[in-house]
């Protein structure tokens, strides 16, 4: 039911509160192998980063699978995946990137797309395993902050006069 309310709102900060529960890693029982492949392709197309392996994207798919224990949520995903194929020639997953993106563009305001986007948003960028790829260093308290680790190491601009 909490899922429902965030679908309705598509509220970013509200979602932050709702999307946070970390679902235990589980096999992707609710989905066929083909559906799992579609979800993986989908989250990669929504937030493509060539430098990332499939692993963090698969973690998002696993979170979706866990959340699909809720029958309403499962139905939303299944119906959304079917509609993907309907929006062009052949199976969506087999099309070239530009065509896949064009099909997604058509459905970017649907509850299905918003749900997957928001799940991927928190599942991916909230995953500490990917942060170093972006140069984000995450928690710093344990390392004593940055006082002796480069808080002021920018050397390509003049030093401010205080």
């Amino acid at each position: 039911m909490r899922r429902r309310s965030f679908l309705a709102s598509s509220s970013v900060l509200t979602i932050a509160a709702l999307a946070l529960p970390i679902y235990p890693a589980r096999a992707n029982e609710p989905f066929t192998e083909g559906q799992t492949a579609v979800l993986l392709r989908l989250v990669k197309d929504i937030f493509p980063h060539d430098a990332l392996s499939d692993e963090p994207y698969l973690a998002v798919v696993e979170q979706l699978a866990s959340a699909a224990a809720d029958p309403d949520f499962l139905q939303l995903l299944r119906e959304g995946m079917s509609s993907l194929d309907g929006a062009g020639e052949g199976d969506w997953i087999d099309r070239i990137e530009a065509d896949r993106i064009a099909a997604l563009k058509e459905m970017e305001t649907t509850p299905f797309f918003i749900t997957v986007r928001v799940s991927a948003l928190f599942g991916l960028y909230g995953n500490p395993a990917i942060w170093s790829t972006f140069g984000y260093e995450g928690a710093s308290y344990e390392q004593g902050g940055y006082l002796f680790r480069g808080f002021d190491d920018l050397d390509w601009l003049p030093e401010p006069l205080s």
């Binding site: 997604l104 928190f122 960028y125």
Partner: peptide, 22 residues
């Protein structure tokens, strides 16, 4: 990075958006 991805564009996705985050 997490908050940037969340608020950088409230409905952002695709390569334009991810190249900014990169």
């Amino acid at each position: 990075l997490t908050n940037l991805a969340v608020v950088g564009d409230a409905s952002g996705w695709g390569r334009d958006y991810t190249s900014f985050l990169e």
